[in-house]
Design a protein around this nucleic acid. Sequence first.
DNA 1: GTCGTTACATAACGATGCCAATGTTTCCTC
DNA 2: GAGGAAACATTGGCATCGTTATGTAACGAC
Lengths: 197, 197
Amino acid sequence: MATQEERRTQTRDALLEAGATLFAERGVAGASVDAIAQRAGRTSGALYDHFGSKEGLLFALLASWVDDATAVITAEQATAATLDTWVAVMWRAVSDPPSGDARWISLEHELWTYAAQSERARRYLARRYQAAWDGIDEVATTWAEPRPDVRIGPAVIGLLLGLEMMRRIDPDAVSDATAIAALRGVLAGAADRGAAP
Amino acid sequence: MATQEERRTQTRDALLEAGATLFAERGVAGASVDAIAQRAGRTSGALYDHFGSKEGLLFALLASWVDDATAVITAEQATAATLDTWVAVMWRAVSDPPSGDARWISLEHELWTYAAQSERARRYLARRYQAAWDGIDEVATTWAEPRPDVRIGPAVIGLLLGLEMMRRIDPDAVSDATAIAALRGVLAGAADRGAAP
DNA sequence: GTCGTTACATAACGATGCCAATGTTTCCTC
DNA sequence: GAGGAAACATTGGCATCGTTATGTAACGAC
């Protein structure tokens, strides 16, 4: 019943799933190709046939993820009627990731440190985040008049990532109220309020 | 002229310096013990005599760093007369690190991903950041009445790290004005303003 | 001046890793 | 149903890395 093509996408998905878990758990350098393949019930040969290299698997992983996450977030953003619900939606997307995938942030950090060594990874990161910044910038104009000297997108995304980092160390340190208050504050501070002398 | 003890601290410092650079450049996993020793003009034998293991070097590095950075920051904080100058001092400490050490943030990320694998590293991180949070919490009460359901320390530190991350991708994305506006916004949002319905 | 100790260097071991070359099996086509 | 290709497995080479065991030269106490 299972055609060859179905089988192929099946093992591809299994390898991506295993890679996501092990990269997040042990890091890109710490997760061996053999360990990933074994967890997927396959061997390293299959992995190389599919992705060509370890880095290939990493990029494939991130590509699929970005598509999923941004799709979910922008879809929910469209339904946000007030600034508070918008902020809450963003925070929820980070603190309790869509598709029930809690490894997202870990992998994000992995990519970040990996970017210190790989030029390709750095360019990849830049493209990806600039798109996210633009999205935030655009939605933010709905809620407040922007200041010319302040770019709101990077500030919001940075705060989201930073809050998640703190929460990983101590979940009690960043309550939902704290996160939402901080996000609203950044949006307010970067808006029409004049700069201090 | 050089006594034995002087020689020892000299090579210790050389190894720390080399470790800082290579850990930041290539990551903890990517920087080999031999490469670190070679950069310090020594051999791996010296490194093991001093630090016992690769992890030992990492922890020694961070310990010395935390002492330096927090000393500088708290010293400057005491001189800050207004909220704006305080915020500016904090941002400057992150964006243009004290002691001219630009590798700080890279190493911070390294430690973060390393913490995913090492229980000891995680506990180390927690202790370190909780101290920083408390410091911010205390100073923040000088400028605004705190809300009971909002912890300001983690929000400020998170924002600082997040902003720096964005700035690494694209230095133009986070101007000083953006950073300071965002920080002031977080402080304002987490203060006396009432929560939304 | 002798001798133990310190502060490194040297060299080798064991383990592990990425990756490629080469099988083997399964599936589709005609 | 036979040939061929696709999908995956097996094996091994080649390199690297963390660590340790051992060597050695300089130093310092007496």
